[in-house]
Design a protein around this nucleic acid. Structure first.
Length: 346
DNA sequence: AATTCGGGGCC
DNA sequence: GGCCCAGAATT
């Protein structure tokens, strides 16, 4: 109880001013929570502003096309969030006439809404007594209580959820949940937290044991995959090029890219040209091929490093479902492609 | 239980 | 270069 009291008091004096803190409309809270999953406020905030301006209600979002939503989501990453956002918007409009579910259990059924997000919406919008456990909460609790259970283990997930649920201020779950997250974000930071200025510096176990930089414990380190991408940037005499939609599961699903040849190593000019010829990409049309970037562009994702070459392919004509270069900007593309578009002058 | 989904910021 | 971020879905 002392913990909750101190925490909410700290929050009242230190909370930042964000647009989603001015409302309890579940549509806006839901939108903000999806955008902020695995995303820092600084990165997500501009996207939130654009989304509420473009889609003021869940009906507007449901009526939009997925491609349009993905275009607005471009650059934010984890694109399944945008696809699920659209699915859930349509579901809420069609099944509930636009009215959001109001309990943790019902919110949990929505696509893209897991334990954290269901708890956040239920507590903030409907005052339900259910504790959020995000990366901030793991860190704050692990340090304050000196808990060494790995946070990404089944045991840890249950243990921290139970503890947070015991600590929550039942009189004001919305305030408590946001307070502990804000505390983790700005005070009990991952690196170099200012423990001298912390309201818990006389009771924090990790501080007493000099374990601030060892908690929370996370097991397993992810392994990295290297991939080799060769994008074919076609340019025809009438200013057309070719984009294709990524339909396969994996990264960037439903985003657009230049035709891609993936290889198991970095290709040189001859190797690439042989493949292009062998695949009849151009049906024997003559073409002028050259490499845009001398050194591979290394695009880093969480689990993959993409060693990328952009090959310019000048041709006389292109097939009918090619698009004009000026229209490329209307398609949602990965940051890797977008960076190329910004640097390359068609 | 382990993997896979992005991209930016920080050290 | 490694770790983290208002996590969730899939395997």
């Amino acid at each position: 109880m002392v913990f909750s009291k101190t925490l909410t008091h700290w929050y009242s004096n230190n909370k930042r001013d964000f647009p989603w803190r001015k409302t309890k409309n579940p549509y806006y809270i839901w939108l903000s929570e999806i955008i902020l999953q695995q995303t820092q406020v600084k990165q997500g905030l501009p996207y939130y502003e654009v989304f509420i301006r473009t889609y003021p209600t869940v009906f507007d979002l449901a009526n939009a096309s997925e491609s349009e939503i993905l275009k607005l989501w471009q650059g934010l990453g984890y694109y399944s969030r945008a696809r699920n956002l659209h699915t859930t918007a349509k579901y809420i409009v069609n099944k509930f006439n636009g009215e959001f579910p109001s309990t943790y259990d019902d919110l949990l059924k929505l696509k893209g809404v897991g334990d954290y997000t269901a708890s956040a919406i239920a507590s903030i919008c409907f005052n339900e007594n259910t504790a959020v456990v995000d990366g901030n909460v793991y860190r704050v609790l692990a340090r304050y209580f000196g808990i060494e259970t790995p946070i990404n283990s089944t045991k840890g997930t249950k243990e921290f959820k139970k503890l947070a649920q015991e600590l929550i201020d039942k009189k004001n779950p919305a305030e408590f949940n946001q307070a502990i997250m804000e505390f983790g974000a700005t005070q009990c930071k991952p690196k170099n937290p200012d423990c001298a200025a912390c309201p818990f510096n006389n009771s924090c176990i990790a501080l007493q044991k000099n374990m601030i930089d060892k908690l929370p414990v996370k097991q397993k380190t992810i392994k990295l995959r290297k991939r080799y991408f060769n994008f074919l940037v076609f340019i025809s005499e009438n200013g057309n090029t070719v984009l294709e939609k990524r339909k396969t599961k994996g990264i960037w699903q439903n985003l657009y890219q230049f035709p891609l040849i993936e290889s198991n190593k970095s290709l040189n000019y001859k190797e690439l040209k042989d493949i292009v010829n062998a695949h009849h990409v151009l049906n024997g049309n003559c073409f002028n091929l050259f490499l845009y970037n001398e050194d591979d562009i290394i695009h880093k994702l969480s689990h993959q490093h993409l060693y990328t070459k952009f090959w310019i392919v000048e041709v006389k004509t292109l097939h009918e479902n090619s698009i004009n270069i000026n229209d490329v900007k209307d398609f949602a593309v990965p940051v890797l492609i977008d960076n190329f578009l910004k640097s390359f002058n068609f």
